[in-house]
Design a protein around this nucleic acid. Structure first.
Length: 550
RNA sequence: GGCCCGAUGGUCAAGAGGCUAAGACACCGCCCUUUCACGGCGGUAACACGGGUUCGAUUCCCGUUCGGGUCACCA
């Protein structure tokens, strides 16, 4: 038995399996040619972030469009930063947006697929098996340097303006013999396990990134940490092991990882794995003081996907917006295929934008108004009810008290070839519907300045007798026109414009006065429909209240 | 600072060695119209800078500037 074997056994006495066994346990997937296996592998350090949803969308689309597999892996190797319920929130959020993984970690005790476990904290044995093998082969070694020592080395390197890190002369533990290392372990010293990097900084690695193109960088020569003191792997090592064993074909992740690719490639090489294809996507940015920066969980409310749910953006809207950012062709495709399932969009990683897009709320709102305008009243009412139950109970109580009336509100001017686009998110609804539930304050009404109070009062008092709820839109307006001559108003707007001085105003002004008295607003959807919904009694009461204060 | 990546209107973006440099959002104007919204029409607004290569660069090359990322026992 060699000294390295002894060392390896001493370091990992509990490892009973071999890498070969795991290779056999997780065989290559039997998928059709071209099928891509992708994944979303968030770490539960907070709630679902827009960036994660975005990356998940792209991974999902990539897998689905090729008949592949999209799975979920939980990267919970940093217990210090873990947030309670984070994993569940992320999982629930993804499903909510239609990105349900085909396999993976599904919550406490829930695992699907043949390539698990997918929670890294459940994979310690696997990682240890591979590290042990590396130690035995002399490709990894224990390092006993303390944080203080490491800091001292770094400062030294900085003062000499050298590249910092654990490499070359700084890599003291690399030069320990297996016997010396064993001795330190026996002495009870804590250690991490480092890779014995075969890299050379003067050589260059080249790789093809599916979105950024060909990239060339110096080779990695850092003896990076594989296993932390607590025996838990670092991201880099876990990435290599997991994505290999889970047979990921395409690693699609944020471009903050791009500078680590030389490390990852080296890891795959040392472990004897075939590396996956990489696609590094640009993050969604935010503008601040004229500069771009990544959307920040702390500073930007819209970074949390929860924000969109709370604001009441339909899931379709958020997804469509994400897709327009992800692929410039999406909007055109959507225009040609208005009803198509968004996931049937022929997505292509190579057409993704290379630089990060600024998050544009205006654009989201526009996308969302289009989405909402295509829904029927039934759906809109249902969604608003659902949203309000959660985020605006007072409003919910009003709607729920009379669902038919509520649906009536959202039916006005809906449907047809030119639907209204007033509502972009459900939180717009309370204000949109306010006057249906509350009489305007008669003393606060603002009428057009061109009209005299006396004329307004006359309009208000002469209208009630001609109002009949059974009138259709045309009859309703004809009745208003018929009232005009006696009031000194011109029934026809066009005619009025030819001779403005001959009248006090026109039929439109008359209806505006009624509109204001009934709704308290100058701008509303079709007044005739509003009146019919409100009911004659209510209308008369509102008109009278308005007239009484003049 | 080292190493990577990037740069087309305010934003998102097509584009290609020669075009009047698309389109969408936002903004402005006009039309339609009982208000608003919708819709239609039109408008303001861009190839970061300096060198090359070329008959001709916004497009290719180099440099500069600016922006972004990364340099952990975090992911």
């Amino acid at each position: 038995m060699s000294a390295l074997d002894t060392l390896a056994d001493r370091m990992f006495p509990d490892v009973t399996h071999t890498p070969e066994e795991y290779e056999a346990l997780y065989p290559a997937r039997q998928l059709k040619e071209g099928a891509r296996v992708t994944r979303i592998a968030p770490s539960p350090t907070g709630y679902l972030h827009l960036g994660v949803l975005y990356a998940a969308t792209i991974n999902y689309l990539t897998a689905k469009s090729t008949g592949g597999v999209f799975y979920f892996r939980l990267e919970d190797t940093d217990s210090k930063r873990e947030v309670d319920g984070g994993a569940e929130d992320i999982l629930a959020g993804l499903s909510h947006y239609g990105l349900t993984p085909d396999e993976g970690y599904g919550g406490p005790g829930k695992e699907t697929g043949n390539y698990g476990p997918h929670r890294q904290s459940d994979r310690a044995e696997i990682y240890h098996t591979y590290v042990k093998d590396l130690v035995r082969k002399g490709l990894a070694y224990p390092c006993f340097c303390t944080a203080e020592q490491l800091n001292a080395v770094r400062e030294e390197q900085e003062s000499r303006k050298e590249r910092t890190g654990y490499y070359g002369a700084a890599a003291v533990c690399r030069r320990l013999s297996p016997e010396e290392a064993l001795q330190k372990i026996e002495a009870g010293l804590h250690y991490v396990v480092r890779l014995r990097s075969p890299g050379d900084e003067s050589r260059r690695v080249k790789f093809d990134d599916m979105v950024k193109g060909t990239i060339e960088m110096p080779e990695n020569d850092q003896d990076l940490v594989l296993l932390k003191t607590d025996g838990i792997p670092t991201y880099h090592f876990a990435h290599a092991i997991d994505d290999h064993l889970m047979r990921t074909t395409h690693v699609i992740r944020g471009d903050e990882w791009i500078s680590s690719v030389p490390i990852h490639l080296q890891l795959f090489q040392v472990l004897g794995f075939k590396p996956p294809k990489y696609a590094h996507i640009s993050p969604i940015m935010k503008e601040e003081n004229g500069n771009k920066r990544k959307l920040s969980k702390r500073k930007d409310p819209e970074a949390a996907v929860r924000y969109f749910t709370e604001e009441g953006y339909p899931i379709q809207s958020v997804m469509e917006y994400l897709l327009t950012i992800a692929s410039s062709g999406f909007e055109d495709w959507r225009k040609c295929n208005p009803a198509a399932d968004r996931f049937s969009f022929p997505f292509n990683l190579k057409k993704m934008s290379v630089s990060g897009a600024l998050f544009d709320l205006d654009k989201l709102n526009d996308v969302s108004k289009n989405v909402v305008s295509a829904m029927d009243a039934d759906a809109v009412t249902r969604y608003i009810l659902e949203w309000a139950a959660q985020y605006n109970q007072e409003f919910h109580a009003k709607l729920a008290a009379d669902p038919v009336f509520a649906q009536g509100i959202f039916s006005i001017d809906r449907g047809g070839s030119k639907p209204r686009k007033d509502i972009g998110k459900w939180s717009d609804a309370p204000d949109y519907a306010a006057y249906f539930y509350q009489r305007p304050d008669p003393t606060g009404l603002e009428y057009p300045e061109s009209l005299h109070a006396a004329d307004i009062k006359e309009i208000l008092s002469s209208y009630p007798p001609v109002y009949d709820p059974s009138q259709d839109r045309q009859q309703w307006f004809d009745a208003i026109k018929a009232l005009c001559p006696a009031l000194g108003f011109c029934p026809e707007v066009k005619e009025y414009k030819k001779n403005p001085d001959g009248y006090k105003g026109h039929a439109g002004d008359v209806s505006t006065v009624l509109r204001i008295a009934v709704t308290g607003r100058r701008n509303t959807p079709d007044l005739c429909s509003i009146m019919r919904l409100l009911g004659k009694e209510e209308i008369l009461a509102r008109l009278q209240a308005a007239a009484s204060v003049l």
